[in-house]
Design a protein around this nucleic acid. Sequence first.
DNA 1: GCATGTCAGGCGTAT
DNA 2: ACGCCTGACATGCCT
Length: 727
Amino acid sequence: MDRTLGKDSDPVSGSMDKSSVWDVRPLRRLVPVFPSQPNSSSFSVPQGAAPFFCVPPFGPFPSDVAPFYPFFASVGSHRHPEQNSQAPSGVGYGNPVTAAVPITSFRMQPPSTAGVNGDTGPSRSSRSRVQSQSHSSFAEEDGYSNSQNQGAQFLSSFSMHVADVEDTSKSARRKNKSQKRTRGSGDINITLPDVDADLIVNNILSSCNLMEFDMLRRTDGDKESVGYILLMFDFLRRKLSQVEDSREAMPGVSRRPDLRVGTILMNKGIRTNIKKRIGVVPGVEIGDIFFFRMELCLIGLHHPIMAGIGYMGLTVNQEEESVAVSIVSSGGYEDNVEDGDVLIYSGQGGNVNRKDKEVVDQKLERGNLALEKSLHRGNEVRVIRGVKDVANPSSKIYVYDGLYKIQESWTEKGKSGCNVFKYKLFRLPGQPEAFMTWKLIQQWKNDITSRIGVILPDLTSGAENIPVTLINDVDDEKGPAHFTYLPSLKYAKLVNSAESYGGCNCHNGCIPGNQNCPCIQKNAGYLPYISNGVLVNQKSLIHECGRSCQCPPNCRNRLSQGGLRVHLEVFKTKDKGWGLRSWDPIRSGGFICEYAGEVIDISKIEELRGENEDGYIFYATRTYQPMEPLCSDSDGVPKIPFPLIITAKDAGNVARFMNHSCSPNVFWQPILRQSDKGYDLHIAFYAIKHMPPMTELTYDYGLILPDKEERKKNCLCGSSKCRGYFY
DNA sequence: GCATGTCAGGCGTAT
DNA sequence: ACGCCTGACATGCCT
């Protein structure tokens, strides 16, 4: 078998290779050019042809170019500087370019100095600047400079210069002040985590053309820009969490990757809908979910980072008055949220939440005043409802529940005895269900018979630890063709490997930062998952702990082995047969399931194909082009040690019901579980983006070589980027 | 398991 | 400068 397996993911012996964290290789992030005629000689690269070209994240895209996803930066890649320096020529990658677009043609306007609030221009963070400088020697040792130089060289001037602008803003001064205080208060060594944070984030950002984010889209977002910002935010946040997880906790230094990343993105102007507005926020849909307040802020749905009431000044008849535009109801006050369409919201202030000696009443000011004005003006108010995240009880999920109007207001005595303003809001009719869906699902969980169209409460018959509902509320088909439910992948035998090792000795589970753990070493020094069980980013190959590892089943590095974590349902779609969706929200990077079935030999593929119209075959080596934007390592193809083919026709799990989409919300990831006797390779699915409950889960089935052309099927994914077919 | 406490935190608003 | 319906932990209470 492949004797080079794992070579690229082995850390430099003796120490963690930090360059892997901020290894910046812009080429990998650029959009591969797909030929408009996919069956033409698409996979040969003419000598001298540039295989990639730059496009801004949000277009305009040449007709044959798809935007890319932010699962690009790789922990596991270890390209040498010499390789990096060759990158711009890029010969040997990708496809011929029919209409290459020069980099400069999408260059953004010179950074504007004034945002709406005077604080939104491109980065003015003196902290990043100072810290980058003060750690230059440290960085060089880590190979950082190489990648940075490469990035700077390749991106010419337009992405780096903004990071070097002196920050004279109030917030920066404040930041410096608070930082000084923080540092002075504890014993902190040279490698401050916050230094790394800025370094890491800035390097990733500078590698992916985000500075192309033009002013227009900052003022008014659209679905693409909003989606991109959210993907970027959470990817960076996970990356930062991963790095901080692997360090000693430092007293006095807070771990708030959400705030750190949010602040950097805000300062760089990587945000949208900056201008406050009443009503609809372009690019944000009712039902969209968020996991951090910072996300609401970045996409302009709710501007205050902590406060629950967002409001803006309006000049009416030459008089300035403030009106409420958005509220977040997340349980901090005694709101009444029993009814899905009515919300009794409490005003802010007073000592409702504090145990002071004296009772302090709420005052008719700030948000309270704005809500009062909005009652009289009758303007729409966006409502975001915070719900407890069942999968992660210490945090909340924010659900955008659409537009409401304020019906009445009054004051009453709160529990602490102070006067509290109350506002009754009702949801405007005709909007898609959002929060109500959450309530319904809760009912289904309590009593499945309350659901219409249920065929089977659990089609796995207990094979999974969470039931999988089978439902058809579209027509009267009674279920998919018979198959045996198999919760995990079945191997006839382990694959022998010369590189097998005995596994780890982490009896309490693999601990991030433990560089002695061979499994962590295999993953280039970092566990691929952060503490809440979220995959940090896509990699060409993940090494999970295997059967000879000493760690328990709940080890963080065995995430894909624990079975389902969300309540899925197999449902009848309108036009694509059966599909898969989730009752529970799924966050970006969240594990969905593995592809279970029987591993078959490549020689059997043709006969199976012949008799099997519906496919149910997962062919790991088939997917070439569509994975490229998701994958960053080496040649952009998942690095699997042998051509894995799985059939789920007779036996499989829920994954066999996942439909194809050219704009998927799920990606697959090869996972290797090794032991001293060999290894087995698995395919696991993870969410590309946050997904509200009941979103159909889809992944890209990929392309196939032109000689298999006759097997393509018409695609019904309905995406604007639809290729028109899939295999 | 929960409820409550604590702490650092960034931004918007008012001063 | 202040305050805010954060978010991550820690602690303490209850079953």
